Structure formats: C-alpha cells, structure tokens
Amino acid sequence: MWETKININEVREIRAKTTVYFGVGAIKKIDDIAREFKEKGYDRIIVITGKGAYKATGAWEYIVPALNKNQITYIHYDQVTPNPTVDQVDEATKQAREFGARAVLAIGGGSPIDAAKSVAVLLSYPDKNARQLYQLEFTPVKAAPIIAINLTHGTGTEADRFAVVSIPEKAYKPAIAYDCIYPLYSIDDPALMVKLPSDQTAYVSVDALNHVVEAATSKVASPYTIILAKETVRLIARYLPQALSHPADLTARYYLLYASLIAGIAFDNGLLHFTHALEHPLSAVKPELAHGLGLGMLLPAVVKQIYPATPEVLAEMLEPIVPDLKGVPGEAEKAASGVAKWLAGAGITMKLKDAGFQAEDIARLTDLAFTTPSLELLLSMAPVTADRERVKAIYQDAF
C-alpha cells in the first residue's frame, strides 16, 4: 500500500486558495466578479490574452458586457504566444502601467494566465522587469489582483501559485512560485473548451497527467497529493478517449477540466520534478513545441527512472492506464512501456528526434536543466538522485 511510503512525522502544507467557479455556465459569474472588483476600486484593468481563443471560445461575449455594465475600463493586450516570453510580459506591463491598471484579467490557457500573473507582480514593483522576475533577482510578496478565465483542461495554473515564462536569448524557461500570484477568482467552464483541437485536447490532458505523476512521487508528496493523483488519472483515462471521439461532449470536458484542476492543486502542494524540469529546456529551445507533447515524450523515460523508488504509489495511481502492476521495483520497464502504449492510444507517439532534436542536443539540454533558474530546485524534489547522468539518460531514452 502506498500509505507505507508516507512519513507521518513530516509536516506538509495543504494548499487550496483560489476561489474557482466550476461548471457549465460558470463564465456567467464574470458579472459578479466584475461587480465586486468595481466595489473594491479595481475599475481599470488590463486584459491579457492570446491572439484568438478569447473570441473563438465565446468567452469575450460575456466578459466585455460584464466590464461595461460595471463601469470597468480596460486595455487589451492580445499578443501572448504559446511559451510566452519576458519581452511579451514587459510589453504588456508597460501598457498596463501607462493605463493605470489596478488589476489583471487573463483569458486563455497556461500561457496567457502565466503572463498575466507576471504582469500582476510587475504592476506592484514599478522598478522591476520580467527578466529580473524570472532570474529570481527579487522575491515578490505582492501583486495586483488576478482573475483567470481558463480555456484549457491542462495547466492548473488558474488555481496555483506558479507561472512560467521564457527568456529567449538564454534558452531559459524558468518557473516562479509565489503566494501573491494565486488568482483571486478563476472560472473553469467546460463549454469554453469544446473547440479545442484533438491534438491540443490530448496535450493538455497529458500535462495534467504529468502534474500528478510528479506531485505524488516527489519528496514532499502527501496523502492529499496521492489521492488527488489517483482521481486525476482515473478521470483522464475514462474521459480523454470520449473527448477525442466527441469533442463537444460537455460531460467529458467537465471531468477532464476537473482532473486538470485537482492536478494543479496537487502539484501546488507536492511540487514537480523530472518531466517538467526536463521539458522546460525542450520548449525553451524550440518554442513551437507544445508543452504537453514535450512532457508526453519524456514521461515513459521518467517513469522508468522513478518507479523503483515509488512502486506502491505509481502502481495504484497508474492502474487505470497500466493495469496489473504489482507495486514492486522490478516492474519499472513494464510500467514505462505501459505508459508509452497508453500515450500512443492518445495519439502521442513522437520522440525527441521526431521533434527535430539531434543527439548532440542532449548535452545542451542537460546543461539547461541545471542552469535554468528554478529547475534545479525541481530536480531536487525527485524521489531518486537527479544528477547529470540520470538527466542525460532520460533525454537519451526519450530520443
């Protein structure tokens, strides 16, 4: 039983701080949120989005009337790309400062929400910029209030204290984690996600899957993260095939979104380790690489490495996608191949070489895993020693 792996004498933090409005029709709660923001004096905001999803999903049709009704004026920054950059954050921050924005509203998946969290910090630190923030040159303790309208079922960022933004010239993709960037309110409405393409549906769900594989096996895993992990895997295994076959199925989207939400809460508590620490260099070097796809390429190799240290946890957790695991160290290969088979069923069969990486890139990727700000901390959370040889072995196995 996995319970035997928990040290009951180690004190754990249990985090669940953001108020999330969840369910079909939750987008209508934006009117209540806007009213409250107006009452609190947050009557000038910056809206941060990507280039099209905020409209294509229908979210914009609810947000603009709510802001207008409650006499909230806004400026709109719509240039956030997948794997957002510090330059985008600084550009949005400059516009927000000049406008006098007092709060931030993000509409999108992880990229717009993480960019918005970053802008919220910089609004409270007018002498700082995004490079300083993501090179950990200061520790923020305050940020402008954040509203997150989530448009994907993968990142969990709408309910956690994390954000990720790239520094292109250094090929860094660091993560930050501060209490001040929990969104005050978030909206999770599965009706906004029915137009997600099939590949993105798979990629974001694999992101959520990776969150719990790591959160349930890290050095700070707790019964809370493990229970959340088990339910996340069960829901993804059951509802991802349905969403891929029937994209407009609101029940499937609902439960994939719920899985993503609780996975976000799980890693907010249990942190991350190998797959995220090793994926960030991949999409920093190749920004066009979807984060979830990169994670999927790495996951079987990571499972192979960590399974011997956490077999009881992983056997129970992975049972819906890799049945008949006994929870003994010697079945690491079986677990890894089972995960790879399940990923293939979701359409994820690519290896690093298929994404354009060369064998000689492995040394650089390994260096980036240890030199990118914040990633070495993630590696230190792994259940096995995360030295350069092990990191290199994971990249080679995924190649």
Rank of each mutant, 00 (worst) to 15 (best):
I265Q: 10
L256M: 07
L257Q: 11
A266I: 06
G270K: 00
Q242G: 15
T251P: 13
A266S: 14
Y254R: 12
A259F: 09
G270M: 02
A248F: 08
A248C: 14
A266Q: 09
P247T: 00
L240P: 00
N269W: 06
P241V: 06
L235I: 12
F267N: 04
A263T: 05
L257H: 08
I236P: 01
L250N: 08
T251H: 13
A243E: 00
P247H: 01
Y254F: 13
I265V: 11
Y239N: 05
F267E: 06
D249G: 04
L256S: 02
D268F: 04
L250F: 08
Y255M: 14
S260L: 08
P241T: 08
Y239L: 07
V233P: 07
P241D: 09
I262C: 09
L250M: 08
L257G: 11
L250Q: 08
L235M: 13
D249V: 01
N269P: 09
A263Q: 03
L244Q: 02
L256W: 02
N269L: 04
S260P: 10
F267Q: 04
R234L: 15
A259I: 09
Y255P: 13
D249Y: 02
L250W: 04
Y258K: 10
L257E: 09
Q242T: 12
D249R: 01
A266N: 11
D249C: 06
V233K: 10
A259W: 07
R253F: 01
L250C: 11
S245C: 15
R238N: 15
L250S: 10
L261T: 10
H246Y: 11
A259G: 09
I265P: 04
T251V: 14
A259Q: 07
Y239M: 07
A263L: 06
R253S: 02
Q242R: 12
Y258W: 14
S260R: 07
A259N: 10
R253N: 03
T251E: 15
L261Y: 14
R238E: 14
V233M: 09
A263H: 06
L244P: 03
S260H: 11
A263W: 02
P247G: 02
I236M: 05
A243F: 02
A248P: 08
S260K: 07
A237S: 14
L244I: 03
G270S: 04
R234K: 14
S245Q: 15
G270R: 00
V233H: 10
L235G: 13
Y258E: 12
I265N: 09
A243L: 01
F267T: 02
L244A: 01
Y255R: 12
A252K: 01
